[in-house]
Design a binder for these strands. Structure first.
Length: 953
RNA sequence: GCGCGGUUAGCUCAGUGGUAGAGCAUUACCUUGACACGGUAGGGGUCGGAGGUUCGAAACCUCCACCGCGCACCA
């Protein structure tokens, strides 16, 4: 790493290392490996889709989990692929066809149209895959799958045939959710209820048998009146019960003769007599509830709406041919003309919308294929609900069924060499965490309730779609015969069902169909069930729940052990990202501008578990700034030269001192011990956060350690050594820096794969590692472990050094305050005098001097401060800034007085507590001691500040 | 109607019983020998409201308000 640029430039670095990883096959999973397995299947993005911020969030998390698992010594399979996304893709190609050739798919015919879709897929299918590569995703691309691959299609057909033979799949004429724009049936999950402003129309109808009696009916859909075949009242309703069995005259179509418009008044419990007028018009062909009433009363069905949402001839002359919404207005006019319109009042109700086309669903009777969901009881039972085995004790029995394939909650002390070199510290295979054997855990767990509720109330799944792009239903018909099978039946005259299957009917097989099922492949044996699934809660029913059922039905086991539900990415104002709003930044643009590492880090830092993420480009900027900081910290290390006494040349790699030296424990300064202890704490915090899927906590911990502890204090303190002349001490400090950096870079690797790989090699930390332990790539370097007691004992890493060094830094902070009080510019060098309370090492004196940016620090135990000299008091001694005349004494006095007020108020707070006998008697001893200590500390501060004030005179 | 989240600094959010935190923004000063994508120091909060439990509540309980989401749904 020669001639390091001042600012980190991600562009060249990122492409270089991604190519390297691919060439070296670093992402390829080996089913024969002896290592424990870790696996994830990607939620397959739409094959014609483009990367958006949701993908960034989701796939960064999967990449972090995968990379961490590799460093934990797992054999990792992250299996990628794409989804054919039936409606979305078909619509996209249809639009293009319309635009470029002014043709519809019907103009081309099915076969030709499908050729066009495949052509589109060939042309655009790689886009999102390449975008994922830009993001750094470590997927095993040799196993990339597409839901329309021949082998995958075979799985879908096989599953259909099996379920058909079991009687779980059946065909029937039922009311379905019909999208008039896409002209296909949809599942219940694809219908979105939206409140709509409209009108409640009241119109009156004459009772045929009692011409003086008129009933008033309330409806929001007067255009369906021609399809009414009864009116219903509640048999318990005293207003109307006596009319049951009589008839009313249906007002539309107006032109029909009266006797053709007589429809019965029926009694049905479904009618709520509190609502509306208590009289319900029944349209069995165009309303689900009405269909049920119609079935109960054997009512005839009159279809008045076409598949495209227009009215047909049965709706009557003026309405026929009109769109349903236009027809509504005309129907109102017709009723008004007849003088039967009583009133129309504004009304808001919920209307089901097609999620795809964003138009109101039309309930419609049609012949469709349905699935009775399989394996429901197992699927319900396997997901841990709240308060059920929630937090396993650290390191206890939480291992996943596949043995060691889970994740760590505790730390194994082994593998920590007492000999401290930069890249040492082998990571133990972590004991499992996550779900209990045979159980699955959702993160955050509250989604388990949502899942359970859905599973409790599911209806059969409408799986047929009136589309062309998708898996065609493997059923053939001839006259009255039906054949369901993997192959077309022999003989003449068979025609295949023209429908295709719901896309989710193929993606629910994803976790095992991608691994070679139904063959018992090595991949399946090694990697199924998968370890983690990372996805959005918006597809918990569509995909997650159905995968679980398929897992039990076809593999006899759950498909994954943990499901992490991400939040939804929103813009700064909290709005969902959408193309129409134009508030969705293009991740590729962000990567070009800031680097993929920056995008990943920024996203992770602002994405707490279970909360939606309000995306702000500032976050990415923060990520870039952080990478730059990391870069420059390493640059600083490089500029200090080799750790050995003599600079080693590149031809002498046997002299490991080029990169790092052994740490000599007797030469460790308090600052060294301080940073090593802080590193130890950071390793713990980051590891724990990752094991709990708390990615924002992990990044925050790393950020704090590296920026606020390592850079702000340790690096600055080190300059005391580097600016000195003690070469042995310099070498030792460099060895400590190398140790800390080589660990830190590894901790950052899952988050920042590119810059860490660059630094790992550039700093030379790779060179003394075995090839499969980080020598080739940091990807396989062992994840750092917290230090064990032997290690700490050997290097004298006692917690007292934390306190001691904190006190030193506190003194520095207070000393800097004096400059400000004196209005001394930051750049101006001044002389401080220090009156030590105990022995002060030359090293510490030098550190204090440097951190104070002082011209000099005179250490003088007998210093007689002139009146008016600003001072700070500390356990270590008194620090003076003797600048007579330059100090604004009054201002400093004001500051100190303010300080005194604050101290006194803190003292009285604690004293009050301690004076309360209830408190002192009931509180745990540790808390009591802590309060007493706090009081003592504040009192010492009070004394110090008082002295400072007096010294000012 | 049922259920789930949320309400803490100007903004975005951490903080599950013991001294209110971070990043951004902001103010002042500084291009000093890793970094201006930087440094140093500062200002800024009665933790949505009301009760309760407790020696002690931002945190636990009850109720309320507002924001968001999911499920169900009456024409």
């Amino acid at each position: 790493m020669s001639e390091i640029p001042k600012a980190y430039e991600p562009q060249s670095v990122e492409d270089k290392w991604y190519d390297f990883w691919l060439k070296q096959g670093c992402f390829t999973a080996d089913p024969q490996s002896a290592k424990p397995a870790y696996s994830i299947v990607i939620p397959p993005p739409n094959v014609t889709g483009m990367l958006h911020m949701g993908h960034v969030l989701n796939n960064t998390i999967q990449d972090i989990l995968s990379r961490k698992a590799r460093m934990d010594g797992k054999e990792v399979l992250w299996l990628p692929g794409t989804d054919h996304a039936g409606i979305a893709t078909q619509v996209m190609v249809e639009k293009q066809l319309k635009k470029e050739e002014k043709k519809s798919r019907h103009d081309l015919g099915r076969e030709e149209f499908l050729k066009r879709v495949w052509a589109w897929k060939e042309k655009h299918g790689d886009i999102i895959i390449n975008q994922l590569k830009k993001l750094g995703c470590s997927c095993d691309w040799t196993r990339e799958r597409f839901t329309m691959d021949p082998e995958y299609s075979r799985c879908v057909q096989k599953v259909f045939v099996e379920l058909y033979k079991k009687g779980l799949i059946y065909r029937g004429k039922r009311m379905v959710n019909w999208c008039p724009v896409s002209q296909t049936a949809l599942s219940d999950e694809e219908v979105e209820m939206k409140p709509q402003k409209g009108f409640m129309y009241h119109f009156k109808v004459q009772v045929a048998e009692a011409p003086d009696t008129w009933l008033t009916i309330a409806t929001t859909r007067p255009e369906t009146i021609p399809g009414d075949t009864a009116v219903a009242v509640n048999p318990k309703d005293p207003r109307y019960a006596h009319l049951i069995g009589q008839h009313i005259v249906r007002p539309l179509p107006a032109e029909l003769p009266r006797e053709q418009k007589l429809i019965p008044i029926i009694g049905d419990e479904h009618v709520d007599f509190e609502f509306g007028t208590g009289v319900l018009k029944v349209t069995p062909a165009h309303d689900k509830a009405d269909f049920d009433i119609g079935t109960r009363h054997k009512l005839p069905l009159i279809e008045v709406i076409n598949a495209d949402g227009s009215m047909n001839v049965l709706a009557g002359g003026p309405l026929a041919g009109l769109d349903r919404f236009k027809a509504r207005k005309v129907a109102v006019e017709l009723l008004t003309e007849q003088g039967v319109m009583v009133e129309e009042k504004p009304y808001e109700n919920n209307v089901g919308f097609s999620q795809r086309a964003d138009v109101p669903i039309e309930p419609r009777l049609s012949e469709q294929w349905f699935l009775k969901y399989p394996a429901v009881p197992e699927s319900k039972a396997c997901v841990e609900q709240d308060g059920f085995g929630s937090t396993p004790a650290p390191g206890v029995g939480a291992s996943a069924p596949a043995g060691d394939s889970g994740r760590a909650t505790s730390f194994d002390a082994h593998g920590q060499s007492a000999r401290l070199t930069a890249a040492d510290g082998a990571s133990a295979a972590a004991p499992g965490a996550g779900a209990l054997p045979g159980k699955m855990r959702f993160h955050p767990q509250r989604w388990a309730k949502v899942y359970d509720h859905w599973l409790t109330n599911i209806q059969d799944w409408c799986i047929s779609r009136q589309l062309w792009w998708g898996h065609r239903i493997p059923v053939w018909y001839r006259n009255g015969e039906v054949h369901c099978g993997l192959e077309a039946p022999s003989g003449e005259g068979w025609t295949q069902d023209s429908d295709v299957l719901d896309t989710w009917f193929s993606s629910w097989l994803w976790p095992f169909a991608t691994m070679g099922w139904p063959e018992p492949t090595d991949t399946l044996k090694k990697f199924y069930p998968t370890t983690d699934l990372v996805t959005g809660p918006d597809i918990i029913f569509f995909w997650v729940a159905r995968m679980i059922m398929a897992g039990y039905e076809f593999m006899g086991d759950l498909p994954f052990q943990n499901v992490y539900f991400t939040g939804i990415i929103r813009d700064k104002q909290g709005r969902k990202m959408s193309k129409t709003l134009g508030n969705s930044p293009d991740p590729l643009v962000l990567i070009a501008q800031y680097g993929a590492d920056a995008l990943r880090f920024g996203t992770m830092r602002s994405a707490p578990l279970g909360q939606d993420v309000l995306f702000d480009e500032k976050d990415v900027e923060l990520g870039r700034n952080f990478c730059n900081k990391l870069w420059n910290a390493c640059r600083f290390r490089q500029m200090q030269g080799s750790a050995g006494a003599s600079p080693a040349s590149e031809d002498a790699p046997s002299e490991q001192f080029e990169i790092q030296g052994e740490i000599e424990r007797t030469l460790l300064t308090p600052d060294d011990k301080w940073i090593l202890l802080k590193l130890d704490a950071a390793i713990r915090e980051v590891s724990i956060a990752l094991n709990e899927y708390k990615f924002s906590e992990a990044t925050a911990a790393l950020y704090k350690f590296f920026w606020s502890e390592y850079c702000d204090w340790y690096v600055e303190a080190c300059k005391a050594v580097f600016f000195g002349t003690d070469t042995k001490q310099k070498a030792n400090t460099l060895a400590v820096i190398d140790f800390v950096l080589s660990h830190t870079i590894r901790l950052f690797h899952p988050f920042l794969p590119f810059i860490t790989e660059e630094l790992w090699h550039g700093m030379g930390y790779a060179t003394d590692m075995p090839d499969n332990q980080g020598g080739k790539t940091i990807m396989n370097a062992p994840w750092p472990l917290p230090f064990d007691d032997d290690f700490k004992g050997h290097y004298g890493l006692d917690d007292c050094y934390l306190e001691m060094t904190d006190t030193k830094y506190e003194l520095v902070r207070n000393g800097r305050d004096l400059r400000r009080a004196g209005n001394i510019q930051a750049a101006k060098k001044v002389k401080y005098v220090f009156k030590p309370a105990q022995h002060l090492t030359p090293h510490d004196a030098e550190v204090i001097k440097l951190l104070l940016n002082a011209e000099a620090l005179e250490v003088n135990a007998d210093y007689p401060p002139p009146k008016g000299t600003p001072t700070v008091q500390s356990k270590l001694g008194e620090l003076f800034l003797p600048l007579e005349g330059l100090i604004d004494v009054a201002a400093e006095k004001t500051r100190l007085t303010k300080e005194l007020d604050k101290i006194q108020s803190e003292i009285s707070k604690v004293e009050q507590k301690l004076a309360n006998p209830n408190f002192t008697q009931k509180v745990p001893p540790a808390v009591l001691a802590e309060h007493e200590q706090r009081l003592a500390d504040w009192k010492a501060k009070l004394a110090h500040t008082q002295v400072s004030l007096e010294t000012l005179g």
